[in-house]
Design a protein around this nucleic acid. Structure first.
Length: 793
DNA sequence: AGCACGCCGACT
DNA sequence: GTCGGCGTGCTC
């Protein structure tokens, strides 16, 4: 038997199978994680197929070890990895590694071992093993080299498995319930602990085996247990114990659906029953009851003996959310997200792999959960940018979900109040099936949304951050002991030019996108086409001198708030205050308990939070994201404002939303005020059409980086020429232009954007460029290819 | 990637 | 003469 193995060496030349002979007695299968000899060393690898006939001319080496008792990868995942690698220009091994929990990544070590008894007596070998990676002293390095060349020592290559199982001691019963009952009569009267133990055994025998902790909770001491072991009432065994990230929760019953919800569920149910792979776009305003539809659809999948996968953005994977799913499906649920420890993640993952969990809730990478027989996939808040991984391998969870939906013949639900334009457009074309939930489930009215035009308003504090109307409204809520959420839109921290007098924003004449100020060169630059001009001193529109380069921070606003409301308690939530594990949750619970009056934060407070006492939501600066040099700036702004507006007045109290903006007439802001997604969609599609942007065009971003700016630029131009030699209209090749952060960690970035409708040879051409990238890497040039980038900055 | 081989200049 | 710098090529 011959195994075809993808080895753990991420490089162009090794991005293919290597064949190994499977020695007798080794239980190797497709998907197995194995250790193989590779050149002089040993590496980890994954078997992607088994054959009888080798295509390799040389002598095959033997597999050394099969690491896990059960292959970690299913055949489906092995197949998926091949397709995905091709699509997103990633090495297959990188994809296989991202499919698995982090602890399955191998740890490589090189140690020196003596080759003779003589050598073993050297002082060098007397302490711990000699790890060659930690060898620093020059004389020791020299000595080691001599030993090796004289044949007195050799290097041993180790591949270590980091996966650890947690073992725990549990007590098994050795007798029958009646026998324990009889024993209960025999023990002497004073032996209270023994009595407790025996009566528990007699009455709750099916609940056994029990752990030491469980028995201690019953008031049975270690001494009493020792005694029970000696008397052969119990036996002790070490068994594996799962590290569970969540506590059991009280079960919940399905809610009664309204007519809209029932119709949607019914439509999904049809394809679920029919084993049909169909993508649904479920468009439903905040509070329309999407979650209940998800839960009941999952129930149906389970009833058919199938499994379900539900993805949510990391940020909304709050304990409340997880609890909701768990209260419906209990122990069948496995949870996968970044707040888990490595051990917890490994154990949750193994529960899935072993078929012990049938429902998976998780963030982006959970899309690779090793479920069998998937009956339903759900992506909630499908418009969220976090579903696309922004470093290698740059996969989009939605694309992976579509692939898996085809593989399993199951429905995929994309749910959102503000679907991404790409998804909404596909629904328009009939690629996805559009389903709508237009009413709020409990028939609450949408909150009132007011726009505050910052061009014609008095500011309350010393800074130009908080207007009088907003501060008055805050004052009012503070007096009523109600709570306030303030959102500071940090997206778009890049400095753009804004006129305080007329609201004018300096834009690129070719691209209709805002220019970004570069302090180093004192120029305004376009990051799409490379256009640049000098930083203006007066507003090019109205000649006013009151021009500003925007960018504000939560700290600054917090200071201003405490200045205006010295008596108010303010909680700040941003990357700085949530860096530590669990702090996100801590801040939210504290606010939920009413320990603060105002919650001030960035994007992260806009999602999925539900605080009944919040009656005012203020947006400090709606515009910052609007003039970002990205074609989807309006879409992201609309999304954010609509989501945040949904945070006000979710219970019985009426809510109000105040949005401060310099651009009250901009369609993204106006339509967010009206909460009119459909109109926004129509308008934005026109804009995208006029600008040849997605979803009318597909995009690929090729970025080149180097320590030396000229080298990066030169290579970028070379790649552009190469692209132009093959690609023809209507394909558009823009750039190279310096990236928004043109220098990052001393690397200069240049990027080329390819916009295309249909290009048969593009994939092949990009693979060629990727191959060349490996060659030019030695000159310090890095080339990266990002299909359908989320951000082009 | 990482390891060896091989070629060249620099030194005890 | 040998040590160590980096370019080149290979890994089943």
């Amino acid at each position: 038997m011959i195994a075809q193995v993808i080895v753990d060496v991420a490089a162009r030349q090794t991005d293919r199978v290597f064949e190994y002979h499977v020695p007798d007695g080794l239980d190797a299968d497709v998907g197995s994680r194995v250790i193989v000899p590779f050149g002089r060393r040993k590496v980890q690898g994954f078997i992607v197929s088994l054959t009888e006939q080798s295509s390799f001319a040389g002598q095959l080496k033997d597999l050394l070890l099969v690491v896990d008792e059960m292959p970690p990868l299913t055949e489906e995942l092995v197949e998926l990895s091949a397709d995905l690698a091709r699509e997103i220009f990633a090495y297959r091994i990188s994809i296989l590694k991202t499919m698995l929990p982090g602890v399955m990544r191998a740890n490589y070590r090189k140690i020196l071992v003596p080759a003779s008894e003589q050598a073993a007596k050297l002082p060098l070998f007397q302490g711990d093993e000699v790890d060659l990676a930690n060898l620093e002293e020059a004389h020791l390095i020299k000595m080691v080299k001599q030993l090796i060349s004289k044949g007195e020592a050799r290097i041993e290559y180790l591949v270590e498995n980091q996966a650890r199982k947690k073992m725990t001691a549990v007590y098994f019963p050795r007798l029958k319930a009646e026998e324990y009952r009889e024993l209960l009569n025999e023990v002497r009267a004073g032996a209270s602990q023994q009595k407790k133990l025996l009566s528990d055994l007699a009455e709750n025998l099916p609940a056994y085996p029990k752990s030491r902790e469980q028995l201690k909770e019953l008031g049975i001491s270690t001494a009493a247990l020792k005694n029970a072991l000696e008397k052969n009432w119990l036996s002790l065994k070490e068994v594996e114990q799962y590290r569970r990230p969540t506590k059991p929760v009280a079960p919940s019953q399905p809610l009664k659906l309204n007519a809209d919800q029932a119709a949607v569920l019914d439509r999904i149910s049809q394809d679920l029953q029919a084993h049909k792979s169909q993508t649904f776009l479920l468009e439903g305003v905040t509070g329309s009851g999407k979650t209940e539809v998800y839960l009941q659809a999952i129930s149906q999948a389970l009833a058919l003996g199938r499994t379900a996968l539900m993805l949510v953005p990391e940020i909304s994977l709050t304990p409340q959310m997880v609890r909701q799913v768990q209260s419906r499906f209990g122990q069948q649920v496995a949870v996968l997200h970044s707040a888990l420890s490595e051990g917890e993640r490994y154990d949750e993952w193994r529960r899935i792999r072993r078929g012990e969990a049938q429902v998976v809730v998780g963030a982006r990478s959970a899309v690779f959960a090793p479920l069998h027989n998937i009956g339903l996939i759900i992506i909630d808040e499908e418009h969220e940018g976090s579903y696309k991984q922004d470093n290698n391998p740059r996969y989009h969870a939605r694309d992976v979900a579509i692939w898996r939906s085809r593989y399993h013949g199951c429905p995929l639900i994309l749910g959102s109040a503000t679907p991404s334009l790409a998804s909404r457009a596909r629904a328009q074309k009939g690629v996805y099936q559009l389903l709508r939930l237009q009413k709020r489930a409990k028939n609450q009215p949408l909150p009132r949304v007011d726009l505050i035009d910052l061009k014609h308003v008095q500011f309350a504090g010393s800074q130009f951050d908080l207007s009088c109307p907003l501060t008055e409204a805050i004052q009012d809520r503070l007096a009523k002991k109600e709570q306030v959420i303030l959102l500071l839109n940090r997206r778009g921290f890049a400095n753009f030019m804004l006129c305080r007098n007329c609201g004018f924003v300096l834009k690129c004449p070719n691209c209709d996108l805002s220019l970004t100020m570069h302090k180093d060169t004192w120029t305004m630059q376009c990051h799409y086409c490379g256009y640049q001009e000098a930083v203006p001193e007066v507003c090019p529109n109205c000649r006013d001198r009151q021009i500003r380069f925007l960018g504000t921070g939560t700290q600054k606003v917090q200071e201003e708030l405490s200045e205006l409301f010295p008596q108010a308690k303010i909680l700040r939530m941003d990357v700085d205050t949530t860096r530590r594990k669990g702090s996100y949750e801590r801040i939210l619970t504290s606010f939920g308990r009413g320990e603060a009056d105002i919650l001030l934060g960035t994007q992260m407070i806009a999602k999925g939070l539900d605080f009944p006492n919040v009656t005012l939501v203020g947006v400090v600066n709606a515009d910052t994201g609007l003039w970002l040099p990205d074609y989807n700036a309006s879409e992201k702004t609309f999304e954010l404002l609509t989501q945040v507006a949904g945070r006000a007045g979710r219970a019985d109290k009426e809510g109000q939303v105040m949005i401060q903006t310099y651009n009250p007439d901009h369609y993204a802001i106006r339509l967010a005020q009206k909460q009119d997604y459909e109109l926004f969609y129509a308008k934005e599609m026109q804009v995208r059409h006029a600008g040849d942007y997605p979803p009318y065009f597909y995009t690929v971003l090729v970025s080149v980086s180097a320590k030396n700016e000229q080298n990066a630029a030169r290579e970028a131009f070379k790649i552009k020429r190469q692209l132009l030699s093959v690609l023809k209209a209507p394909t558009i090749v823009l750039g190279p232009a310096p990236a928004t952060i043109s220098r990052l960690k001393n690397q200069y970035y240049y990027q080329i954007l390819v916009k295309y409708k249909r290009e048969k040879h593009l994939n092949e051409l990009l693979h060629q460029i990727q191959d060349q990238a490996q060659e030019v890497k030695k000159y310090g040039l890095n080339v990266e290819i990002d299909p359908e980038p989320e951000r082009i900055m």
